[in-house]
Design a protein around this nucleic acid. Sequence first.
RNA 1: GUGGUAGUAGCUCAGCUGGUUAGAGCGUCGGAUUGUGGCUCCGAAGGUCGGGGGUUCAAAUCCCCUCUAUCACCCCA
Length: 448
Amino acid sequence: MIEPRTLKGFRDFLPAAMIPRERLMETARRVYRRYGFVPIDTPALEYLEVLTGKGSDETDRQMYHFTDNGGRAVGMRFDLTVPLARFSAQHINELGTPFKRYHIGAVWRGETPQAGRFREFVQCDFDTIGTTGVVSDIETALVIHELLQEIGIERFKLRINNRQLLTGLLEALGLGNQATIVLRALDKIDKLGAKAVEKELSEAGILEPQIAQILQFASIRGNPDAVLEQLASQLRGNQRAEEGLDRLNVVQKALVAAGVPQERFAIDVSIARGLDYYTGIIFETMLGDLPEIGSVCSGGRYDNLAELFTKQHLPGIGASLGLDRLLAALEKLGKISAQAAPASVFIALFAAERTSDYFELAALVRRNGFSCEVYPDAKKLGAQLKYADQRGFPVALIAGSRELDAGMVQVKDLRNKTSTEVQWRSNPDEFIGALRTMLTMERGDLFA
RNA sequence: GUGGUAGUAGCUCAGCUGGUUAGAGCGUCGGAUUGUGGCUCCGAAGGUCGGGGGUUCAAAUCCCCUCUAUCACCCCA
């Protein structure tokens, strides 16, 4: 006997978990398409050099890689952005710019699993390639907001920053080449506090007055308007920073104009996003009820991503919804309703010798756009109804030989326990009408 | 990868300082007049006590290793 088991950080999904997963992906697709993004897919496995080209030591360490049977060095993708860079370089001439795509797929990282962190997980990415316009900055923010809203999350905050602000400041302080160290340290300010960041920076050899300025800069808080104002006064005269600030101003105004509530977003200069490739605006999204799980949707602008693969200048911007992390959060918050009917109409099997009649009935139901399921065994009616009830079917159709002979069926509303007899063979319209009235009643939402 | 905590039935857990055939609730399956569900009652199945090794007359219980989960570091969705 082989022990049935799965690898650390890899999971099976039972129907109760898979139904909300699929629903979430459908929501993401719907929102992405609403903004004109089109779907693509890329291989799970790539040449190792394609994946390691742009990553840091950390991503290299976490990547699953091996030599395939043909002796090639290959790796499993650890995000969807690097494959997009390769994809764009390879196909952009057939696609034209701007190119807006979404990509939902699994990625793999060999890191230690934790709550909401797995070794195999699904990301729902959307990116815009080939424009540096601030319009795509705005659109990215709007999509993130709409996505979270449509999923049904009431409390979340989209935190926005622009790398140019900090880069500009660091250049002015003469720390231009230590950006990564400072960014990484600053990213922890929320979690560990200013003291810890100060210590980390001074251990990295950054001088006292420099640290003071960095921390003062990162401690600016308040509503977007106020933050932008303070930043403007502090960064005046710094060309690079002012450019980033101008863009943030445009984004801020557009978000308000598009109806994004003030409490849903913040300008927060302490967020850094570890990935080195971001060059402009950056986003992360925290859940109001579960901030400790981390960002569920992050991204930003990367103006040089494809440079390793092509001489063509391909700027890009996008973000990634962490499907599995979000689901883990929703589950923790008790927002995933366990029951979701796989189909809406249940057909009880009574007289096994009349099987074709049941399939004739089922075909009629499905032809009219309702999903239905025929019970596989002619068990006691009570047991069949119990099954239907437990799966959450709203409607059951019951007919024995007597009714079938007469072309009748009992249409039973499983929630009200009411039922009516209908002539389905001679009067299908009346039958479908009866079904429709029962099924149009509120179906419970997937996310409470 | 490093460190802390944990692992008993499908799920949630009980099992005192080692002592004979390891229990409960829920769930599953069967039954209570093969034609009407969520309640009730009766019954059954289901456990190598995560796995391996060791100490002991005796290990779910103590020790070591390992696997898995979880938390922290690191990093990130």
